[in-house]
């Protein structure tokens, strides 16, 4: 038995060499074949386009690592955006109450998911599939089915502003990546998340409060979805109740391409960042090459299946 090369090279970050190589290979291919791919402004474009899905993908990573699932991310995103829009615009409340309201709405819906999963024992798939529909309906009810326009300037700055030339959503996304990477890989909260996904009984018998931890995870997931909703609304300067449809699937795809085990126990946030960037670069490069978006969907689906297949081959070789 010898330490695999990948874990030696990237042991500090716990990132798989394969995903880094795919990312670099893809970037290289795009640099050669896609006109204007290789520029700072295009690089920032990719990051900007990745930010909202990326924040959702951080949430998906945590939930998947604990062998859970959150299908309601995209709908919760819409609720948070609409809540902050209604608070700020329709009710004329100050911007920070709008932000707080959006985050709280996300966290609250996450708490409902968590309680139903951890206390009532309903499978996460069912609970969050239900929430996918319920939250979408709530977003439409709260906004009366229409987008809310004219968000306060502080909020739109978070979506459209730049700091040192870099768009604010990119700063926020990258800051979250660093913080949540440390949480997942270095703190007890992250360790228990992985252990619950690995072997729930091991977590229970060693004294980890599994139900409480699961509830916290879904609250975290909902809150991050809320934050993604605020960023999205801020960027397009409209809180749209139909925003984020099927984003949860992109988020899960990014996490899985980045090496998160769909059945729990393994995953990193840096890996998920790489997964999200692979998707972002693919989309961006194919756009620049004027490949119709229909083909992009085929490409992303193929990469997802390839990533998991590679993973299986690797595991079989290892064990």
């Amino acid at each position: 038995m010898q330490t695999p090369l990948t874990s030696r090279v990237f042991s500090g970050l716990n990132v798989r060499l394969e995903s880094v190589l795919v990312l670099l290979g893809l970037a290289l291919a795009m640099a050669i074949f896609a006109p204007d791919f290789l520029s700072l402004s295009n690089f920032l474009n990719i990051l900007l386009a990745t930010a909202v899905i990326g924040v959702l993908a951080i949430a998906a990573t945590f939930v998947l690592c604990a062998a859970g699932l959150d299908l309601s991310l995209g709908s919760v995103l819409a609720v948070a955006g609409v809540v902050s829009g209604v608070l700020c615009v329709n009710l004329g409340l100050p911007w920070f109450l709008g932000l707080l309201g959006g985050l709280l709405a996300g966290g609250l819906l996450g708490a409902v998911n968590g309680l139903l999963i951890a206390r009532a024992g309903i499978p996460a798939f069912i609970v969050t599939l239900g929430m996918l529909s319920v939250a979408r309906g709530l977003a439409l009810i709260i906004s009366d089915g229409k987008p809310v326009y004219g968000l306060p300037p502080v909020i739109t700055f978070l979506g459209q502003g730049r700091f040192l030339g870099v768009p604010m959503p990119v700063w926020i996304f990258l800051a979250l990546v660093v913080v949540f990477h440390l949480i997942l890989s270095r703190t007890r909260f992250g360790r228990y998340t992985l252990v619950i996904g690995d072997n729930e009984m091991a977590a229970r018998v060693t004294g980890i409060d599994v139900p409480a931890h699961k509830i916290r995870l879904y609250v975290l997931s909902g809150t991050l979805a809320g934050l993604a909703g605020l960023l999205f609304a801020a960027r397009v300067n409209a809180a749209d109740p139909t925003a984020g449809v099927s984003y949860e699937l992109s988020a899960i795809t990014a996490a899985v391409i980045g090496g998160t085990n769909l059945f729990g126990g393994r995953g990193t946030v840096i890996g998920t960042l790489i997964g999200a960037l692979i998707m972002g670069i693919l989309q961006n490069g194919l756009n620049l090459m004027a490949v119709p978006s229909f083909y992009q969907q085929v490409a992303i689906g193929t990469i997802l299946v390839l990533a998991v297949w590679l993973d299986r081959v690797r595991d079989r070789r290892r064990v």
């Binding site: 992985l194 252990v195 690995d198 072997n199 091991a202 060693t206 126990g265 393994r266």
Partner: peptide, 9 residues
């Protein structure tokens, strides 16, 4: 008896 270990950790 089943050791209750987290095998991926």
């Amino acid at each position: 008896q089943d050791l209750a270990l987290a095998k991926q950790q």
